[in-house]
Design a protein around this nucleic acid. Sequence first.
DNA 1: CTGACTGCGAATGTATACATATGCCCCAGA
DNA 2: TCTGGGGCATATGTATACATTCGCAGTCAG
Lengths: 241, 241
Amino acid sequence: MAHESLTQTQKALLGLRQRILSGAITGGTRLYEVALAEELAISRTPIRAALSRLAEEGLLERGSGGGFIVRSFALADVVDTIDLRGVLEGTAARYAAERGASPENLAKAQTILREIDRVLADQAVDIEAYSSLNTAFHDQLAAMAQSATLQRELARITALPFASPSAFLEDHDRIDALQRTLISAQAQHIAILEAIAGRESGRAEALAREHARAARRNVEFLLSHEGVLREGVASLALLTD
Amino acid sequence: MAHESLTQTQKALLGLRQRILSGAITGGTRLYEVALAEELAISRTPIRAALSRLAEEGLLERGSGGGFIVRSFALADVVDTIDLRGVLEGTAARYAAERGASPENLAKAQTILREIDRVLADQAVDIEAYSSLNTAFHDQLAAMAQSATLQRELARITALPFASPSAFLEDHDRIDALQRTLISAQAQHIAILEAIAGRESGRAEALAREHARAARRNVEFLLSHEGVLREGVASLALLTD
DNA sequence: CTGACTGCGAATGTATACATATGCCCCAGA
DNA sequence: TCTGGGGCATATGTATACATTCGCAGTCAG
């Protein structure tokens, strides 16, 4: 097995996930263990384990009489999922405001926002840097809610590639337009944190909910320009229509 | 075991779920495939399949180095989960109001509510009948939202025994107190449906969210009377503290 | 011509032998 | 006594042979 220390299950998991996310296996397709085992040159047992985990992730669903089917996502599903993230993040922000965030957590969030400010100040924005800081802020928000349940469900939703807070950022062709978007988003970040610090729970919830609308607009924009932009947008390859 | 046509996986699933929900296996316990296989007289393969499905259900979590651990639920988790159901049902009610429910769906919901009225009119309330009608109303609410994503997540949350809309109903010892609770709940049902029919989305969301608070109060009440009431409350057997 | 029965084939379900990883305990040497 | 290493015990990981189930098609009878 050379120097790869991955188990067969992990290989199967990576291979299948990649095929689904890239659109190589399209939504609605029934997956057959034997066929996959042959294709990936792995026995059925780890294939089954991988399929099961992909079902947990939400990329597959179980068919009625056994077997797995690749979930298909229409535009409406994508939009609803992003909105749902907004609802959950809104709840997280409200909890953080109501329950009170610790000074350490507030400081950590502040630090992230200052770093984002620095990234945005550059002429040529480092999108990758923004992405990871943005993800970190959203993670921090989930942590400040002090609800393991909520944090868990947010992680679930966010695992879908098109519902992550930093989805689609790398797919913009017009950097100037993107930069304006990011500046607005950062203004919302600051307002959310201010509301949390000031224990303004209603404001915090509304702001966080609205914040997700930016992502939604982004998707709708990308999809309204069919062939032109949609090609090459990795996160959208698994959409059905 | 005779004429049972259940597969081994299904037997394992039922056996394990029962053991977890009843508290026979307590939260935090690591589950070992071989031990379970011996105990249930089933080979490891179906045991693994069952464990995997229980992880999907949210009753187990995967340990870091492989293996499964029984999730433990503290009171705070139960309360947060019920509140989360409220948030999601609130969103469902808002969507139903915003997107407009079909006359058929509104009529179906109306019918359910009239049947609940009839059940509540009896001197001795048929709690089982109320339970199933209540569940039907909540299911109908989820369907009226016209969002597969939301419906899916609601189903997930509701699968946890203590987060179901009809949890704890059968555990009341004072029927008269319970009856008063149910009458208030039914008033909320009626108001929610009225708000949806009238396209009052804000009102619908707020009402549905508040409606879940009744379930939350119920749990808090049951748990505040430690030994007295808590014993024999099946849905609470899996709580840790 | 139509309906049902039967057999075959392809799928998942199941058991089990063997592989591999990991952690602990014990022993030896500094 | 402390530390490092080696081996065993026990866990999950993997492959595979065999079981079972279910649907479909082909054929025969009414």
